[in-house]
Computed example of a mutant assay.
Amino acid sequence: MGSTAGRATAVDGVLDVPVIDITDWHTGTDAHRAALATAVDRAASTVGFLQLRGHGIPEATAQAFADALDAFFALPLEDKKQLRPPSPDINRGYTPPRTEKLSLSLGVPAAAEDLFEAFNVGSEASAYPGLGLPEELYPANIWPSVPGFRQAVEEWCARAGGLARQLTGIFAHALGLEEGYFAPFTDHSLDVLRMNHYPRPERETVLDRDQMGMGAHTDYGIVTVLWADRVPGLQILDTRGDWHDVLPEPGCLLVNLGDLLARWTNGRWLSTMHRVLPPTDDAGRVVRRRSAAYFHDGNWDAEISCLPGCVPAGTEPLYPPTTVGRHLSEKLAGSRAGRLNENAPREAARLRAACDD
């Protein structure tokens, strides 16, 4: 099956991203679960994004997490730079503004560096004793000495990670698989939480036309759980090549699918390209924006090849088999280390064909 033609609708340029309530997934009737799985399949096939209600993360947890982000990003730049990893190949610690070009992960050069700054934490090898996991893929986290930061971030990771694992069960059901199908691919998952900040300029600035808050990219792994301010900036690319604004509904988390699910489903489900324009107010002035993406990416050594039933008889899969570790390394070498990823020709073609409004 190839990618389904885009059937998502936009009102005043803002894309209608389906809102799905998963409150009763574990306790609902078979009919209720089937209807929910059908709604997820429709969103995954037409938009690649959905808005999640009933996610179970308390508002107090989200507020404590947002406060922790504010406290960290308010530090002086030189203090934050002390928390950079020893190498850009290590996906941890602080990333200063204008040091990444996300479009390179798709094999497309960017005219200018992205504006955002970020801080990453993720799965550590020490959390899985006895597995001999590679330290370069599961490195130790780098923590700032900001009171309460680590506690709030680890709590958010636990909640978002639990939600991501619940979603993989719903995904399996929607694809006609056993609910635990993805568990062997994710029991030592390479999960990363990336906290993003688009700072307000200290003085009025005129931005280059090609300047991006965050360049166009697809997410690399299985599923992303995204917390974000209700500030304009996030845009997603539909299957006709048009960019649309996306704003999360109050109380909802945005969820989008990554490359590995697109590979698994042979393009039936979409790993949707998205970007962040420099956030601006109604007067066109650059404003502050925050977001946090929890990437549930799978085991480094898991092999990803097309799922049963996703390749029509007499055809070949759209994507060759790969491993999670190999795929992530190629993508991260582009975005973080500035090396053009030459193994994303389909995605690069989509970006080059996009209508850049």
Rank of each mutant, 00 (worst) to 15 (best):
M1N: 08
G6H: 08
D12S: 15
P18M: 10
D24W: 03
H26W: 11
T27K: 11
G28Y: 07
T29V: 15
H32W: 15
A37M: 03
R53C: 02
G54A: 11
G54S: 07
P58F: 11
P58N: 09
E59T: 09
A60W: 00
F65H: 14
L69V: 00
A71D: 14
D79M: 10
K80I: 01
P85E: 05
S87T: 06
P88C: 10
D89S: 07
R92M: 08
G93D: 06
Y94W: 06
P97S: 12
T99H: 03
T99V: 02
E100M: 08
K101N: 09
K101P: 01
L102C: 08
G107P: 02
G107L: 03
A111Q: 13
E117C: 01
F119Q: 05
G122Y: 00
S123N: 04
S126F: 06
A127L: 03
G130R: 03
L133W: 00
P134N: 10
P139F: 00
A140I: 04
N141M: 09
V146G: 07
P147M: 08
F149K: 01
Q151T: 07
V153D: 11
V153P: 06
V153S: 07
V153R: 03
V153A: 09
V153F: 05
E154K: 08
W156G: 12
R159K: 10
G169R: 14
A174Y: 00
E179V: 10
G180A: 13
Y181D: 08
P184Y: 04
R194L: 05
H197L: 07
H197P: 06
R203E: 10
D208Q: 06
D208T: 01
R209T: 11
M214N: 05
D219T: 09
W227I: 00
W227Q: 15
P232N: 08
P232L: 13
G233T: 07
L237S: 14
T239Q: 15
W243T: 00
G251S: 07
V255T: 04
L257T: 02
L257K: 05
G258F: 02
L260Y: 04
L261K: 07
W264K: 08
R268W: 00
L270H: 15
M273S: 04
M273W: 02
P278R: 09
P279F: 12
V287Q: 11
R288D: 09
D297A: 11
D297Y: 04
G298C: 03
N299L: 14
I304Q: 08
S305W: 08
S305M: 13
L307T: 01
G309I: 13
P312R: 15
A313R: 14
E316T: 06
P321N: 11
R326G: 03
E330P: 01
E330N: 09
L332P: 00
G334E: 03
S335D: 10
R336Q: 15
L340I: 11
N343H: 09
N343D: 12
R346H: 03
A349M: 09
L351V: 02
A353L: 12
A353D: 12
A353F: 15
C355R: 13
